[in-house]
Computed example of a mutant assay.
Amino acid sequence: METSFKEIITIAGYAIEAFGVLVVIIGSCVSTFAYLRTYKKLHEGSAYKKYRQELGRSIILGLEFLIAGDIIRTVVVADSLENVGILALIIVIRSFLSITLHLEVEGRLPWKKEQVS
């Protein structure tokens, strides 16, 4: 019974990671098509800025799913101290990427409130 539970959790972890990859791919395609459709209609630079924001948001969301899949697979399936350390390193790297992407896209840190103009 334990083996089948671990297999199910492993598959679920990979499925969540695959969904994260799909989010990045689909988000990239949607962002690119929207940019190509509107880049001549908007002011110079604003289409590119909007494109970068939308592309960055899809990457950030995809990273969140990738982190979730890693956590599920590592904590439940690979329960050694070495694997938990590797997971911690992966989470630190991906969290750093998420924070820097958020700063790049939104122009503020994730925990700062949006300024009302």
Rank of each mutant, 00 (worst) to 15 (best):
M1I: 04
T3Y: 04
S4D: 10
F5T: 09
A12Q: 02
Y14G: 15
Y14A: 15
A15Y: 03
A15M: 08
I16Q: 04
I16E: 03
E17R: 11
F19K: 05
V21S: 09
L22N: 06
V23M: 04
I25A: 15
I26L: 14
S28L: 04
V30N: 11
S31K: 06
S31C: 14
T32Q: 04
F33Y: 08
R37E: 08
R37F: 08
T38L: 08
H43V: 08
H43C: 07
A47E: 06
K50Y: 05
Y51A: 04
E54M: 12
E54W: 08
L55T: 13
F65R: 03
L66G: 07
A68L: 07
V75H: 01
A78G: 00
A78S: 04
D79S: 11
S80C: 02
E82H: 10
N83H: 06
V84R: 10
V84K: 12
A88N: 02
I90K: 13
I90W: 01
R94S: 07
S95F: 07
S95D: 05
L97D: 06
L97W: 08
S98D: 13
T100I: 07
V105H: 00
V105S: 00
V105F: 00
G107V: 01
P110G: 08
K113L: 12
Q115P: 13
S117R: 13
